[in-house]
């Protein structure tokens, strides 16, 4: 089995990319809510002190201030833990960013269960669901360092609101170096006709590893990195469902309202029926543990995903 090469944390790649961009473009401004440390933005603050605005622990204010800065011509990255940004400041996201159409880049750091044992207060397992239900925002969850870098670069130039979320653990590379990246256009990482994994964010690595395990058993899997949750790449979902015998979605999110339900809703309405499974976090109090321990608990590591895939095609 091929081992995947370990990269940096997506969080670090985000911070590195942003400092590169901001040095070249003085209109780039970062707004933080006492989150520069957790956002790896200390070097940014030291090197570009005029391009960072600290509002203190006040997420609602963070998003409102970001909207005003964007309206006045700045390219604004509002950076805060995903759990606080998308819950505490949801009304500001809805009204001040999306409805008012101010092109702020909302960066949800340490998303999903990245904060692990810090517990449910710090988990964001609802952010896809709430933001999907709001008009005028793109939602991105990069899988690895490559997707993170590309997302941040493209977000800087986007003229519409965008939300990008990623984790804090060092993450394995899943892409070949010269892959194409375009928001709203999923990437096929591996081909196969038995089971398809449509995964997003940091579960793409696990899906790819699961595909490797399954190959040893003679089951060949397609793995799709659905880095953009909205707008959803329906074309690739349709094509994947037609090509493969069974389809699994994988996401670091509650099983409600995220990628899985988006795919299911699309396929049902497109009249495509196949064995289908939404893998994510169950609707219950999440157990204590690291990100990977929680993944394991919910069958979201390579072994768990491979097991579910086998059951799914057997059922067929």
């Amino acid at each position: 089995m091929k081992t995947l090469e370990l990269g940096k944390a997506n969080l670090e790649v985000f911070a590195d990319t942003l400092i590169e961009l901001a040095k070249k473009d003085k209109r780039i401004v970062v707004v933080t809510s006492d989150s520069r440390g957790s956002g790896k933005l200390v070097p940014f603050a030291e090197q570009l002190p005029d391009q960072i605005i600290e509002v203190g622990i006040a997420e609602q204010n963070l998003v409102g201030v970001a909207a005003g800065l964007a309206a006045a011509g700045k390219k604004v990255f509002a950076v805060s833990p995903a759990c606080f940004l998308t819950a505490r400041a949801l009304e500001q996201i809805k009204n001040d960013i999306c409805y008012s159409d101010h092109p702020v880049k909302l960066i949800g750091i340490s998303a999903g269960v990245s904060y692990g044992a810090l517990g449910s207060t710090h988990h964001s397992l609802f952010d896809f669901a709430v933001l999907r239900a709001i008009n005028n925002i793109s939602i991105l969850a990069p899988a690895d360092n490559f997707e993170t870098r590309e997302s941040v670069k493209l977000a800087a130039e986007m003229l519409q609101p965008v939300y990008i979320r990623f984790g804090k653990r060092a993450i394995e590379h899943v892409h070949r170096p010269n892959a194409d990246f375009e928001p709203g256009k999923a990437i096929i990482i591996r081909e196969g006709r038995d089971v398809a994994f449509i995964a997003t964010g940091e579960t793409v690595v696990q899906s790819l590893l699961a595909a490797q395990l399954l190959e040893q058993k003679g089951i060949f899997c397609r793995v799709v990195s659905m880095h953009t949750i909205k707008p959803l790449d329906e074309k690739i979902i349709f094509e994947t469902a037609k090509k493969c015998k069974a389809l699994m979605t994988v996401e670091e999110h509650l099983v409600y309202g995220g990628l899985g339900e988006a795919c299911a809703a699309y396929l049902m309405q497109a009249g495509v029926v196949l064995p289908f499974k939404i893998v994510g976090i169950r609707d219950e109090y999440t157990p204590t543990g690291s990100q990977l321990e929680i993944f394991k608990e919910y069958g979201m590591t390579a072994e768990g995903l491979a097991g579910t895939a086998i059951k799914l095609i057997e059922k067929k």
Partner: peptide
Amino acid sequence: HGLSYGVGVALA
């Protein structure tokens, strides 16, 4: 909502 937005514009 208006005052935070105003702070952003004033900062810019």
